[in-house]
């Protein structure tokens, strides 16, 4: 009896934290290879290259927990990236960056209006919005990469502070803010309630529309932040950077353990989910796996992890 409880508790953790066992498997597996995986340089680099996706995922997590999703982040990412470079021809750098982020916030506001206020389907609306924005980015850049000539701008995404890449620091700061927002504020709790049961939240006197709307606004803002950081890191703005980003990020959030049905999950889970993706990329590069196989393996991993989830669901059904 005792042993079954303990083993089922362990099983519960494994199925709830889908990404964690996968990360552990990779970490253990890499012990047996002769690659440079376990060097401080590589580990930091892995974090650095995951940072953009991590920042994106924090905003997206809010919308998914509230029972929606945000697939427009890819579009916001590229447009804000292009804007932050392009606007520098007419204004100084920081105002340009500010405008790029405001742009993301405005798109998030529109998303929220359509999805929450007008009650449309988040999946389709934000997908369409993402396509639309990719088109905008192509117009803005004439479908060419747009390089930046400002070394200060490049330093934001490539500089270091006390030996740690700026991007990693920004990611950690974002992580702390968002995790704390979801865990310790009324806003965060209300998002969980809305995703868990929209009607109950409404009956309890929660301002459901404003709260859920705000989730989309924040997601737009973080996507724009990530967009400008990406442009800074690559010193270029381009319409093609965001092709698969939205899908990968939404997927990573769910793989991390946030339920696509809403109400369950959290920022730490999303961080783990996207770290697992980042680590997988890094590991595959270390093992010299060709890019075709990389995408195949990544897809396989996603399917396998989500498949594991059905065990967790089955267990939950037994309990209820």
């Amino acid at each position: 009896m005792d042993r079954t409880t303990r083993s089922s508790a362990l099983f519960g953790i494994l199925t709830r934290q889908k990404a964690l066992p996968f990360i552990i498997i990779m970490l253990v597996g890499m012990l047996f290879t002769k690659t440079g995986f376990y060097t401080p340089y590589n580990l930091l680099d892995m974090l650095n290259s995951s940072s953009i996706l991590l920042i994106l995922s924090f905003g997206v997590t809010l919308t998914i927990i509230a029972g929606g999703c945000d697939l427009s982040i890819g579009g916001i990412l590229v447009v804000s990236g292009v804007l932050s470079i392009k606007l520098q021809s007419v204004m100084p750098m920081w105002p340009a960056i500010f405008c790029a982020i405001v742009f993301g916030v405005v798109v998030g506001f529109v998303n929220g209006f359509l999805v929450v206020h007008q009650r449309t389907e988040a999946f389709i609306i934000t997908l369409g919005m993402g396509l639309l924005l990719t088109g905008v980015a192509q117009q803005l850049t004439d479908a060419h990469p747009l390089p930046s000539s400002n070394p200060d701008f490049m330093m934001i995404g490539n500089g270091y502070l006390l030996g740690v890449p700026n991007l990693v620091i920004i990611t950690i700061v974002c992580f702390i803010i968002f995790a704390w927002l979801m865990r310790y504020t009324q806003f965060g709790r209300n998002l969980y309630a809305i995703g868990g049961d929209y009607e109950v939240a409404r009956y309890s006197g929660i301002n459901v529309i404003r709260t859920k709307w705000l989730a989309f606004v924040i997601s737009g803002g973080t996507a724009a932040l990530a967009g400008f950081l990406l442009s800074s890191k690559l010193n270029t703005g381009s319409a093609i950077y965001g092709d698969l980003t939205a899908l990968v990020v939404n997927c990573g959030v769910v793989v991390g353990g946030t339920s696509f049905a809403g109400g369950i999950g959290g920022i730490p889970q999303s961080a783990l989910g996207l770290l697992a993706f980042g680590m997988l990329d890094n590991v595959m590069n270390m093992l010299n796996i060709t890019s075709y196989y990389q995408i195949l393996l990544k897809g396989t991993v996603i399917v396998a992890i989500i498949w594991l989830d059905c065990f967790a669901q089955k267990r939950k059904r037994e309990l209820v």
Binding site: R189, D197, V200, Y203, I206
Partner: peptide, 17 residues
């Protein structure tokens, strides 16, 4: 359907209003 957030704990359900 209208009373409880089933994903919440007892405490969070009580405190949500």
């Amino acid at each position: 359907l209208q009373g409880l957030v089933l994903t919440f704990s007892v405490e969070s359900n009580i405190s949500m209003a």
